[in-house]
Design a protein around this nucleic acid. Structure first.
Lengths: 211, 211
DNA sequence: GTCTCTATCTACTGCATAGTAGCTAGATTT
DNA sequence: AAATCTAGCTACTATGCAGTAGATAGAGAC
């Protein structure tokens, strides 16, 4: 029965191709949502970029909102796994925080489109998706807060409330997605270095106290 | 000829009333754009909140985009005048920066709706308005950059590039509008104090150098 | 070479809402 | 009290686009 054996193989290939198509749709949609805004970007325009027609998109995504959900999820998921990966690196809180900022900042720059669409268009998500994504975001801030708490305990960090500080850091990182401009005045590396310096200054104690 | 004298008076009152109506429309529109997003918020809904009908709005604003422009302009104008007011206070760069952050942070919290609509919905402005508003924003960052440059010269601030640092500070302040929640975990005062501390740590030198 | 199945397209519907033309009621003038 | 003026309303048009029903063509089975 070679038939039953070939079937799974071919259907695997098919699903790989389908996944690829989904990814391409997502990429172009992200780019368009990023440049024109969610509402002004039409699915006809997304289709045109791929040289297909609107119903093509509808056979891979339920509707426009489903596409937005996936973009937002991708944005937050990428940041979250960069954070988790960085936290897996052994080291003092100080060392870990540097790795975290470096990696997350890089990921944000590389995936700016996903992340800034997520930050800007959150209001256009339906209630369920919005909740889900808010929870991922919250988890991000919590993990960051835990690291800060650890550093506070060891005396490496001079902060009062780790979870509040986490929100500031998280904001500083998010901000990159909103103003960084590829090929602009500053290089990605400069921005990443800056972010690391800023964050370390924000959390590390200084020998001399000031008014 | 008391007639000719009364005419300007009555027309002044009229224009005051017209200005009040414009303001009320703006307030409700801002609130609605803030909670539902620009595109999902309809002018019929804005009208309903004021117990009037849509054509009422059209006799005070040219169209929906005109309303958005005014919201965005209000947001950036408020921040800008808070900054300019703070810069007018005499003092060292350090003292001035503290005043700047305190006042601007307060204004941002008080006028959160205008500012977050501005940050979120910039993409929905027409080209001309967008340019105008980008210039005001740029001016804000420049003034902040000048203050940082002054502090760098006097040795009060330890930063490499004042204009780049200005963008980070500006981002830190903007971020407040995006996450602060009235009646949430933290009070406005806590957030303002935090902002001041964060900013000062970011720019002030520390006695001991670190890796 | 016919049959079937699947992926995509053509061509449409429906709806939400931005924006407007023209009416009305109430105040203002003479 | 007739004439005029104005602010706001009723009732409409127009359009852009999300979403879909049903046709079609091309690959693969037998």
């Amino acid at each position: 029965m070679p038939n039953t054996k070939r079937l799974p193989k071919s259907s695997q290939l098919k699903s790989e191709i389908a996944a690829y198509k989904r990814r391409r749709i997502l990429e172009e949609a992200t780019d368009l949502f990023f440049t024109k805004g969610y509402d002004s970007a039409t699915l006809d325009a997304v289709a045109e970029r791929l040289d297909v027609t609107k119903p093509f998109i509808y056979s891979y995504y339920k509707n426009k909102g489903d596409l937005l959900r996936e973009i937002c999820q991708t944005g937050i998921r990428l940041s979250l796994s960069a954070l988790e990966g960085a936290l897996a690196v052994e080291g003092t809180a100080t060392e870990q925080l540097k790795v975290v900022v470096e990696r997350v900042a890089r990921i944000i720059i590389e995936n700016q489109r996903y992340i800034s669409v997520y930050l800007r268009e959150e209001k256009n998500l339906n209630a369920v998706d919005a909740r889900n994504i808010r929870e991922m975001r919250h988890h991000f801030d919590e993990l960051l807060g835990d690291l800060l708490a650890k550093g506070k305990k060891t005396g490496e960090f001079d902060i009062t409330d780790p979870s509040r500080t986490a929100i500031w850091l998280s904001g500083l990182l998010s901000w990159i997605a909103l103003w960084y401009h590829e090929g602009g005045h500053w290089s990605a590396t400069e921005v990443v270095m800056d972010a690391i310096n800023m964050v370390m200054k924000m959390v590390q104690p200084r020998s001399a106290a000031s008014a």
